[in-house]
Amino acid sequence: MPHPTPYPVRLADEIAHQLDRLTDQLSQLPADQATPVIARILNLEDGVLGRFTHLVATGSYFAKDQAELGALPAEVWLALGRATNELHDIGLDLEEHADALTGFSTRFAAPAAKPPAAAALVVRRRR
């Protein structure tokens, strides 16, 4: 008799599917609706990035215990620990821009006196 797929595996598959759906919907939203969604996703406390970071950290704790028992190579634990640290650092870097993301959608609510200027990254010269 085949073993049924454990619930946590099904849950992980469902979450991956939901992330695909979120990605598809986000790609179709206008800017004023997409930026608050992005801000929620990148929230380090309770957004997708924060929760994913916590999930990887939990995996790191598990891998540490298993590495100490000799069931997993120590490199697995170290890699998960590094991934957790990197994700947390990325979250902190992005947190600096949370106000810009959340404030972006409010610009569309009130009529602007003048259109926003292009950032230096996108300004092109005509020759």
Rank of each mutant, 00 (worst) to 15 (best):
D65F: 07
A39C: 04
P73W: 05
L22R: 05
F52M: 10
T35L: 02
L87E: 03
D46R: 13
L26S: 01
R124H: 13
I90M: 09
A120C: 08
V123G: 03
V56Q: 05
A98K: 12
L26T: 01
E14T: 06
G70N: 04
L11R: 00
I90H: 08
L72E: 07
H17R: 12
D65Y: 07
A112N: 09
E75T: 15
V123C: 06
R125V: 03
V48N: 05
H54K: 12
R107V: 11
Y61F: 14
A112V: 13
E68S: 12
D20G: 04
A79G: 14
R125K: 11
L44N: 09
V123F: 03
G50Y: 04
G59C: 09
V76Y: 05
E95Y: 06
T35E: 01
L69T: 07
V9G: 00
L55P: 01
R82F: 09
Y7T: 02
K64G: 06
A110W: 08
H88D: 13
A74F: 12
T102W: 15
G81I: 04
A74P: 05
T35Y: 00
E75Y: 04
S27E: 11
T106D: 15
F108C: 04
L121E: 14
L121P: 01
V123K: 15
D24R: 10
S27P: 06
A71S: 10
G59Y: 01
L29I: 03
M1Q: 10
A118V: 09
H17D: 04
A31Y: 11
L72Q: 07
L49H: 02
S27L: 11
P111K: 14
R124L: 13
L80I: 06
T5G: 00
L78I: 07
G50C: 08
D93E: 13
H3D: 14
V37A: 08
L121F: 10
W77H: 14
Q66F: 13
P6E: 00
P2T: 02
G103W: 08
L121D: 14
A109H: 11
Q33S: 11
T5R: 00
G47N: 03
E96R: 15
K64T: 03
G59W: 02
L26C: 01
R125E: 14
L26Y: 00
I41D: 02
V76D: 09
T53H: 02
T23D: 13
D93H: 10
H3A: 15
S60K: 08
L121R: 15
D89L: 14
T53K: 02
L92D: 07
D20W: 02
D24S: 11
L22V: 08
S27W: 03
E75W: 02
D99V: 14
V9F: 00
A12H: 01
L22H: 03
L94D: 04
A119T: 08
A98F: 11
D99G: 13
S60T: 10
D89Q: 14
D65C: 08
S60R: 10
W77K: 05
A74K: 07
A74T: 11
P30Q: 09
A112W: 06
P30I: 08
D13L: 00
R124D: 11
A31I: 12
L121T: 15
H88M: 06
A83P: 02
H54T: 12
S27N: 09
